[in-house]
Write a protein that binds this DNA or RNA. Structure first.
Lengths: 68, 68
DNA sequence: GTGTGACTTCGAGTCCGTC
DNA sequence: GGACGGACTCGAAGTCACA
């Protein structure tokens, strides 16, 4: 399993933990809903800026997304 | 100071700590030497795969690059 | 509420050189 | 050893219609 897939799983995990939908996360992070979907399914090689946008939107420290 | 600049500073800090040049880091990570330079100077929005390549090359856990 | 294919634009990433 | 520049390719970023 590669980095993108691991990260995507983490995003989904933390998002569900916070009880938000992909749609709300999209709004909170100012990213597209379908883009979030792709990320969670390990299809996108996200940039550091996107990583931080998502972390902020989920009010979760960036490091938690890399604990795998 | 934005995310890219913070990350770049961290890369430089850890690289120097390990006593390697930008050129050797470029070799170790299979990235271009000018790209490493740009990253350290906060000019590039690196992808998650690149982040892991650099972390591996410096034999340093990814999370350490985000302790700022 | 989520997944997918298709699409365009701009920057990620490479390679050359110079200072 | 490192910064910077031009020129290049390919993929990240961002959006849409449809399922």
């Amino acid at each position: 399993m590669d980095v993108k897939a691991e990260y995507g799983k983490k995003v989904r995990e933390i998002r569900k933990l916070k009880g938000v939908s992909q749609e709300s996360l999209a709004d909170l992070s100012a990213l597209d809903r379908t883009y979030i979907s792709d990320i969670e399914n390990g299809k996108r090689n996200v940039s550091i800026e996107t990583i931080f946008k998502i972390a902020e939107a989920l009010k979760t420290p960036v490091v938690e997304f890399f604990e795998f």
